[in-house]
Design a protein around this nucleic acid. Structure first.
Lengths: 197, 197
DNA sequence: TACATCAAGTTAACAGTGTTAAATTGGCGT
DNA sequence: ACGCCAATTTAACACTGTTAACTTGATGTA
């Protein structure tokens, strides 16, 4: 029975298989097309097996969502190590957010319940989001060490600007080339960051 | 058979009944809960009858969505009549958009495929959106009569700012009171408008 | 009045969804 | 050889969008 550890490893493997498959279907056919049975087929199991790893589809989506937020957080930490200037840091983190949304649109969609992705679990109470928020707020604080409320306001502004441009750029990608949108994004973020000092 | 006109009127009535019911369910239970059968029950018909008015659920959602854009356009026209100053016009239109999103969140959701509302028909090709866009672009043009590309960039900026703040304010309404968000929104829009002259 | 036609509306069905209970299967220890 | 137990599957429920087939009742005509 020394295979217990081995068993746990294979359990973990099918678990990540479920997550991988869900993201794969979402990427190719959109979140609306992601169903438990389709995932089960792909990992060559029957549907109820999926429920041994995730109590509901909602929880599976929540997991993928938080994975996304954690990935972004990691990127932020990497950037923090590379740059010391707060202006540069915030700018690069904004660019990282853009790239993330462009490279993995299906993850960005489930993070914000966009385009058919729908997870009823509230986004904002998660530690992953709180973690991410704190990182940005700290950087803004290093610009202007004001009150918590002022920082929150500025963070809200930054988040809105970034998220708004990303979602609209996605929406308008047929009408307005992504490269143009990115250029406007960079300029706007630069302006915002300059405006902070 | 002079009842033909009468018949057309009742047809129109059940049609708006369908739209009204869909919006009502969406408002109370969210778009995810809106189903053809539930709508049919509410208007006291069987499900296939709904298909005599809308070829698909997608088309019904698209109709509601465009209704929303047209409503907003009407608001813009009203504002254009009241104010002559371009700055004031753009500011008031931004406020109108905020109010619309707050008062009829379910409509705003279906307009942007938010929170479980999902309509596969592309938003941006519709005349309703093009109409709305032109209104704003014209106002921006009256600020700075630059090239079409510059205007488009500024319009994209304005739209992103407005849409981003609205969606995030909705998302954060438990953590951050709507009144605070609205205050930040007003300030940001004011700054944007001032920045145009 | 009897019959045919026709529109309005309904029922029934198909293929799919999330989810759960019940049944099955195969390998292990006794 | 038998019984148990875990792993897995089948079957079911209540839904979904959508469509074909059917019923029903009223109308016009012979």
């Amino acid at each position: 029975m020394e295979t217990l550890e081995r068993k746990q490893r294979s359990r973990e493997q099918t678990r990540v298989g479920i997550v991988l498959t869900a993201k794969d279907i979402a990427r190719r056919e959109g979140w609306q097309a992601v169903s438990i049975r389709k995932i089960a087929d792909a990992i060559e199991y029957s549907a109820p097996i999926v429920y041994e790893y995730f109590d509901s589809k909602d929880i599976l989506l929540d997991e993928i969502r938080n994975e996304g937020f954690r990935h972004l957080k990691q990127e932020y930490e990497r950037i923090k190590k590379v740059y010391r200037d707060p202006e540069k840091r915030l700018f690069e983190m904004s660019i990282a957010q853009w790239q993330f949304a462009v490279e993995q649109p299906e993850i960005y969609q489930v993070m914000y319940n966009l385009n058919g992705a729908y997870c009823t679990i509230p986004v904002c109470n998660s530690v992953a989001v709180e973690d991410l928020s704190n990182t940005i707020r700290e950087i803004i604080f290093s610009f202007i060490p004001k009150s918590k409320e002022s920082i929150q306001k500025l963070y809200f502004e930054w988040w809105s600007l970034s998220h708004g441009m990303i979602t609209l750029a996605m929406m308008l990608r047929e009408q307005q080339p992504l490269e143009l949108s990115e250029q406007v994004y960079r300029d706007s973020i630069r302006r915002f960051v300059r405006g902070l000092r």
